[in-house]
Amino acid sequence: MNTPLHYGKHLLSLLESAGRLSLADEQVNLGETLQPWFMGEKAVTPPWSSPQAYFWQRLCRAVSEAESAFFRFSLPASRWPEVLSDLEPPVWIFWTVAHFEAPRLVEEAVAFAVDATRVKGVPLDILMNEIALLNPEKLHVTEEQLQDVFARLQAATPELLAPRTDAIRAEMASTLKTELERIHVYYDSLLKRRAITEETRFLLQEREQLIHEHHRRLSPRSLRIHMRMQFGLVLSR
């Protein structure tokens, strides 16, 4: 059951074992630290079948506000994930959300792994299966190292996101074309067999303006991307 709901229930049991909440039948009794996230409610019944519900969103937000944003671990060489095999430790892994400023709201979660020379995309649930083997480690990170990692990550992002960017731009171009066609059908119906009058002139100007506005909104050129980093770790062997 590899769904958000599966992770939601896993998160609940983790919070229960950390003493932040307790489960009783279908109901969740919230501890004091979690209550402010639920309008002061002491007990709530989660929507067990819907991962998109507000309950999960609030719970996740509470965890992301309360837990650390950066971790340091080591992993035995024998359990080093296959996907990281071409990277040299220490490896930095960052979990981010990419927001594409397209005319419609498009957002995607992306995880990146960075070592001294390379940057690559990795599955979001990387290390989830190795969690029991992760050891807290004293790994020192200097300001320069961190800046260097960020700089390389930022430089590599356009290429890593290129397939998605192209797809979104293609969607924008196609939408632009469809909407322009609509505008033409509409104005053609209004302008059909009309003599040139002030009204015609007005309609033509109106059409021109609409088309400009559609270009302003839907032009693939207007796409921008905003990356929000959520949390990260440094991993050694």
Binding site: P4, Y7, L11, L14, L15, R61, E67, S68, F73, E108
Partner: peptide, 20 residues
């Protein structure tokens, strides 16, 4: 040293709420 169970909670919460 950051306890690893904090990381597990963080990762699980991200996987629940991550936009798709």
């Amino acid at each position: 040293i950051i306890p690893s169970d904090g990381f597990e909670r963080r990762l699980a919460s991200f996987l629940v709420s991550a936009p798709t």
